[in-house]
Design a binder for these strands. Structure first.
Lengths: 206, 206
DNA sequence: ATTTTTTTATTGAACGGTCAATCAACAAAA
DNA sequence: TTTTGTTGATTGACCGTTCAATAAAAAAAT
């Protein structure tokens, strides 16, 4: 039943099928035959809409990145001029959004991280994302903390978020989102609530 | 020049060659031909000493895990009954040991993480390692903190270590080991030095 | 309103290429 | 003479891409 306007439908189907395939057998064994089967189409369609397998994989990563961006910015939009802590919590919540914590998406993230070490286009996407997280965190901490402290707090929180997320992906019992968020909140609180100790620390470094 | 007692030599050569190959082109393109070429031997040797490519990859992961275990336990052995903080610092230092922060090893770790989602033997190895880090941290925090707090501190620090490490692996500028350690030390200090706030937090949770 | 033409969507077999594993043959030491 | 080490061509399987063929809808022509 070929009709006009299939492109966006097929693209979505194929991206979703890619996530399912990676969840099932991993990126290494996610063949176009398997992906096409999951989408209920033939293999040729992939080259037609994505110009080959690499194009589909890149589009899949872009899709996940887009979801992450939305999850964060939607939460922050409602906040306006709210205190830094509220924005930091929103960024944390966005990173642990439903769209980022499903088994298939976590597996796909891991696979893309590994791939991005050797595929420059994926590497570019991934680095833009890393930088965005860091600079979002950094600018919020900067509203309350001196420069160097804000920078370190941002680096620490970014690492904590990614680390909680990574350990959740690898753990048998999966990611406990509530607990992860709580640990990240605690980190934020300690960074914001300890000016005198933070100052001493800053001096130690000098 | 075939002689007796080649096994350990060849095994070491091939594992090292595997790391080099993964560093060069990634796990997906680390063919046995490429690995054998790096080791200066023929492809057949791999099946002879490792019973196939999978065996070599598993041995490579075991090798890295062994290095990590040594890096941690050597540092801790000298400490004996030293305070918890000293042991925690030693665990941190071990995780950021030279043997774990070279480009090739970090790339290989990432690749194995992704692979371990779908290969049960790698998964087993990786989980033993994750659990060991957590339980080492947990038992040290337990010497100073009440149970629930110690558990959370261990979870947080484990995530922070892995996250710093991950972000270092992905970042263009590489991992800044000094900075990473310092951030992890700060986390330890805040967990150990804030009993009253920690207590309040524990109550909040209840 | 009907027919013809063009465009868009889709298929899946065929092709070229790659890879891991195998194994018969060979070589040097024991 | 036996054991241990090593080679590398061969084999069989698999994978991504291509493309000729097909089909249906849309557009144009009658």
């Amino acid at each position: 039943m070929p009709k006009v306007g299939m492109q966006p439908i097929r693209r979505r189907q194929l991206i979703e099928a890619t996530l399912v395939a990676i969840d099932e057998v991993g990126l290494a064994d996610a063949t176009i035959a398997r992906i096409a089967r999951h989408a209920g189409v033939s293999t040729g369609i992939i080259s037609h809409y994505f110009d080959g397998k690499d194009g589909l994989l890149e589009a899949t990563m872009r899709h996940i990145l887009g979801d992450l961006g939305s999850a964060v910015s939607e939460r922050r939009r409602a906040l306006g001029e709210a205190p830094a802590q509220a924005h930091l919590h929103a960024i944390i919540d966005g990173n642990f959004d439903r769209s980022q914590t499903s088994r298939s998406v976590m597996k796909t993230w891991l696979a893309f991280w590994a791939s991005s070490m050797h595929h420059t286009n994926l590497q570019r996407l991934q680095r833009v994302n890393d930088r965005r997280l860091y600079s979002n965190l950094s600018s919020q901490f900067r509203r309350v903390l001196p420069k160097r402290q804000a920078r370190d707090a941002a680096r620490g929180l970014a690492a904590l978020i990614d680390g909680l997320w990574l350990r959740g992906a690898l753990a048998q019992e999966g990611l406990d989102v509530e607990r992860a968020r709580q640990l990240a909140y605690d980190y934020v609180r300690e960074q914001l609530d300890t000016p005198q100790r933070a100052q001493r620390r800053a001096n130690d470094y000098a």
